[in-house]
C-alpha cells in the first residue's frame, strides 16, 4: 500500500509540473491558435537561470531563504522576458501567414534556444543546488512523500489559485478571455490584442519558469535538453485535457502524471516516454478535442 501511495504522490508531483508548463501551451493556443513549440525551452531557460543565480548566490554565501526567493524571482523575470521577446521576433510577424509557418518558426526557435544554452553553458548535466531542505516534521512520512513533493504540490495549488483569480477578475484576464473567444470582436471593443498576446506569453512563461525551478530542485540536475521532453509531455497533457481549456490542462496533466507514475512503477521504467507519446497519439486519434475541449466545426 505504501508503494501505491508513493507512486500516487509521485504522479501528483509530476502532474503539477506538467500542469505548470501545460498552462502556457493551452493559454497561447487559446489566444493565437499556435502550438508554441519553444515553450519547453522557456521552462529550460527558467531552470538554468534559477540554477545560475542560486549557485552564484550560494558561492557568495547568501542565506538559503534569500537564495530561494531571488533565484525564483530571477527565473520568473527572465523566462517571461524570453517569452515576450520570442513572441515579438518569431510569431508576431507571422500572424497572418499560413498556419504551418508559425509552427515551423516555433520549431526553429526551439532548436535555436537549445543550442544557444548548449553553446553558452555546457552540454553536461549540472547539479542543481538543494533549495528546499528536508523539514523535520516530514520525517515520519518521508519515505512516502518527500518535502520537495509537498512543496511542489503546495506551490502549484497556490499558483493555480492565483492564475484563476487573475483570469477571472482582473482587467487583463477578462481581455484574455475575450480575445480567446473572438479576436476581431475584442479589437472592436477596444482591447489592444497585441498587449493581450504579450501578456499571455509573459504569464505562460512565468508559470513554466516556476515549473522549471521546482522540477530542477526536485530531480537535482539539469541540462539544455530537459525542455524538449518536458515540453512534449506538457503539450500531451494540454491536448489530453482539451487544448485551449485551462481546467483541461490541469486535469490532463494530473492524468498524464499519474499514468506515467503507475506505468513506470508497475510495468517498466524503460518505456516511460513511450507511454507518454503513445498516450498522445491515441488521444489525438480517438478524441482530438480532449477531455474538456469542444469540437469545432470548420466554417465553409
Amino acid at each position: 500500500m505504501d508503494y501505491f501511495i508513493e507512486l500516487f504522490f509521485s504522479g501528483l508531483t509530476r502532474g503539477s509540473i506538467y500542469a505548470l508548463i501545460a498552462l502556457g501551451y493551452t493559454m497561447v493556443y487559446g489566444i493565437i491558435g499556435l502550438i508554441n513549440f519553444a515553450h519547453g525551452e522557456i521552462y529550460m531557460i527558467g531552470a538554468f537561470t534559477a540554477f545560475i543565480v542560486a549557485t552564484v548566490l550560494s558561492i557568495y554565501g547568501f542565506p538559503l531563504f534569500s537564495i530561494v526567493i531571488i533565484a525564483g524571482l530571477a527565473a520568473v523575470v527572465w523566462s517571461s522576458s524570453y517569452g515576450y521577446t520570442i513572441e515579438k521576433i518569431a510569431y508576431k510577424p507571422l500572424r497572418h501567414a499560413p498556419r504551418l509557418s508559425p509552427l515551423i518558426s516555433a520549431i526553429g526557435m526551439s532548436i535555436f534556444l537549445q543550442n544557444y544554452v548548449l553553446l553558452a553553458q555546457t552540454s553536461d548535466f549540472l547539479p542543481f543546488p538543494t533549495l528546499i531542505p528536508d523539514w523535520e516534521f516530514m520525517e515520519p512520512i518521508a519515505h512516502i512523500v518527500g518535502t520537495t513533493d509537498l512543496a511542489i504540490l503546495v506551490t502549484t495549488v497556490m499558483v493555480m489559485v492565483l492564475l484563476t483569480v487573475v483570469i477571472k477578475f482582473t482587467k487583463i484576464g477578462k481581455a484574455m478571455r475575450a480575445t480567446a473567444q473572438d479576436r476581431m470582436m475584442a479589437t472592436l471593443v477596444g482591447i489592444n490584442v497585441n498587449n493581450v498576446i504579450s501578456a499571455t506569453f509573459i504569464v505562460g512563461s512565468a508559470l513554466a519558469a516556476i515549473g522549471g525551478l521546482l522540477i530542477a530542485s526536485h530531480i537535482g540536475q539539469i541540462n539544455f535538453y530537459i525542455g524538449f521532453i518536458a515540453g512534449i509531455k506538457a503539450f500531451t497533457a494540454a491536448v489530453l485535457g482539451g487544448i485551449g481549456s485551462i481546467p483541461g490542462a490541469v486535469l490532463g496533466s494530473f492524468v498524464l502524471g499519474l499514468t506515467e507514475s503507475f506505468a513506470t512503477g508497475y510495468v517498466s521504467s524503460d518505456y516511460e516516454d513511450v507511454f507518454a507519446f503513445s498516450l498522445l497519439v491515441l488521444i489525438l486519434i480517438f478524441k482530438p478535442s480532449g477531455l474538456l475541449g469542444k469540437a469545432t466545426n470548420q466554417k465553409v
Binding site: A90, P102, I107, G108, M109, S110, I111, F112, Q114, Y116
Partner: peptide, 11 residues
C-alpha cells in the same frame, strides 16, 4: 544554432 535560426528567418 544556425538550423534553428534559418527556420525562423526563412519563415
Amino acid at each position: 544554432l544556425a538550423f534553428g535560426g534559418i527556420l525562423v528567418c526563412m519563415m
